[in-house]
């Protein structure tokens, strides 16, 4: 029972990480129709900041990671994606793929191909005892952090004028502009928030692993993107839930698959992804799932 609860908390925390990644990707997709493959490189940039600065000054490291995440996201927007605004989603995706590979090589050039290590927030790697159940503190912190960010983004989208404009631009950019919604501002704000979320993902993952390499952000981005797609990229809530489901599935498969087929856990996740896409092409949670043709 205890181990079941622990596994459940761990799975929830893994799900929370990918839900955050899916949120960051889904926000930008909503406004720009860009499935940003290079989201991982924003995470990586923040992670390098954390690992390098933490030993000197933890507070500075956390602030720096957030600033770097936002800055890299904005730089991507202005240097690359703002030039491609009239292009198709396919072109945007390919460009972001190119940007991702390019940045990984640049990180490799700057920081070397090997991983850098530092223990970030080692205090979180301990276990706490809650009513007889030993819980990984980091898992709990991750869940709380993710919940706070989700609520924060939700409040921003519904309670602020800019947030409302982001929602309008996601629903119909053309009409939003006719109402006076500044396209450049809305896109920049969206990128900035997605960069901030990337920094949060980087924080959780660096505490977990204590290391960072050039392709650090690829894995969470892949699963976040996959989650967002199976949840339905056109609907932010679906995207977040999709990311969560992928994380939970990965974690549960890791703890429950018998050892002889455990190496295939990732293969199972991909099989699941294909199955979901084939059965519900418009996403698990899209209202338009009825459009499936048989």
């Amino acid at each position: 029972m205890t181990s079941f609860l622990q596994a459940l908390i761990d799975a929830t925390s893994a799900g929370a990480v990918y839900a955050l990644a899916a949120l960051g990707i889904g926000l930008v997709f909503g406004v720009l129709r860009l499935a940003n493959f290079a989201y991982g490189e924003i995470i990586t940039a923040s992670a390098y900041t954390l690992i390098i600065v933490w030993p000197m000054n933890p507070v500075l490291a956390v602030l720096g990671a957030a600033v770097v995440g936002v800055a890299v996201a904005l730089a991507m927007n202005y240097a690359v994606f703002s030039w491609l605004r009239s292009q198709s989603a396919a072109t945007l995706l390919i460009a972001s793929f190119g940007l991702s590979i390019l940045l990984q090589r640049i990180y490799e050039g700057i920081f070397g191909a090997n991983v850098l290590s530092a223990s970030v927030a080692s205090g979180l790697s301990t276990s706490v005892n809650l009513g007889g159940v030993r819980l990984n503190l980091l898992s709990v912190v991750t869940i709380v952090l993710a919940a706070m960010l989700l609520v924060g983004v939700q409040l921003f989208l519904t309670r602020t004028s800019i947030g409302l404009q982001v929602q309008a631009a996601s629903a119909d950019f053309r009409i939003a502009r006719l109402l006076g919604v500044r396209s450049g501002l809305v896109i920049a704000v969206t990128f900035a928030i997605s960069g901030f979320i990337a920094a949060a993902v980087a924080f959780v993952l660096t505490v977990q692993s204590g290391t960072v390499g050039p392709s650090f952000g690829v894995q969470p981005t892949l699963f976040g993107l996959i989650g967002a797609v199976i949840g339905g990229l056109r609907n932010l809530r679906g995207a977040v839930v999709g990311g969560f489901v992928v994380g939970v599935a990965l974690s549960l498969l890791t703890s429950w698959l018998p050892p002889e087929i455990n190496p295939f856990r990732t293969a199972f996740v991909y099989l699941l992804v294909i199955a979901v896409l084939v059965l519900r092409p418009n996403g698990l949670f899209s209202a338009g799932a009825g459009k499936v043709r048989t």
Binding site: L164, Q165, A168, A171, L178, G180
Partner: peptide, 25 residues
Amino acid sequence: ALVPEGHHIFGALSVSDNLRLGEVA
């Protein structure tokens, strides 16, 4: 202010949020 053909309102948002978007300009 242009009201384009086909009353493009934001269906997922509330009526009052739609009106708030009118105040942006």
